[in-house]
Design a protein around this nucleic acid. Structure first.
Lengths: 132, 132
DNA sequence: CGGGATCCGGTCGGATACTG
DNA sequence: CAGTATCCGACCGGATCCCG
């Protein structure tokens, strides 16, 4: 992968409850953020395209997510005055950076799901055989 | 950073609603997972230590998270039969791998919060000056 | 097409009390 | 110390209807 960005020094400690970065971490840790940003990583998408690309997301959640991402400067929203309206979402610089990390997680997840499933089954069938 | 792991080929597509990997992504995308795993990355922790390390997490949420992480084979839970009981949580191999990626995100978040805050303030003060 | 508005059930998640 | 159990309010998130 080999894609690390500069990490400026910071006076903040995300392990403290009062750290404002917690909000950002919450946004990134959102159920859909990794998939939405990941889809945008390939190319800009229109709203409907995005909705189809991220299978299972509702229109409401997609809208909410995109608003949050736009607010935090991770995606741009461009409206073309056509009829019917065309709206295109794309990464910002900031969005591209974080997406690299999120994609790594998505990829790791699918690549190692077998190992996780084994652990899960072991956990779910344990306890049934301890002492008795 | 320079820490990428092998990513086995997989027949799953996390962009499909039916992909079982979605569950794992949800776990990893949890509000607290990055912080809990990050704390464990430094060294094993006892329950109380972890509670104090991840400032703001409630005991209930910490317990639930640790159970999920244990179930999916990301952390181990070791009970020492002392009085009062001593319980130690630590990473598994699997947990160490994913934690590298999560730490990258946490670090990026604190390092770039300034840029995000600027974007956020721009967003929040916009619209108030368009046409009128 | 790209949403906004509303209703509403389900779950998240904190506070509190109790236990071995 | 390391939890479990319960109450309960807040918000998540889907379904539905509507609009420019």
């Amino acid at each position: 992968m080999e894609t690390s960005f500069e990490q400026p020094e910071s006076p903040w400690d995300v392990y403290l409850r009062s750290c404002p970065c917690r909000e950002v971490l919450d946004l990134v840790a959102n159920k859909w953020t990794a998939l939405v940003l990941g889809a945008l990583g390939r190319r800009p998408h229109r709203f409907g395209e995005l909705r189809r690309a991220v299978d299972g997301i509702s229109q409401k959640m997609l809208t909410q997510n995109l608003r949050s991402l736009e607010r935090d400067g991770l995606v741009t929203r461009t409206v073309y005055p056509t009829t019917p309206p065309t709206v295109e979402y794309a990464h910002t610089e900031l969005g591209t950076e974080i997406t690299v990390y999120l994609d790594a997680i998505s990829t790791w997840t699918v690549g190692n799901f077998d190992r996780i499933r084994v652990a899960r089954e072991a956990y779910d069938t344990r306890v049934l055989t301890p002492v008795t």
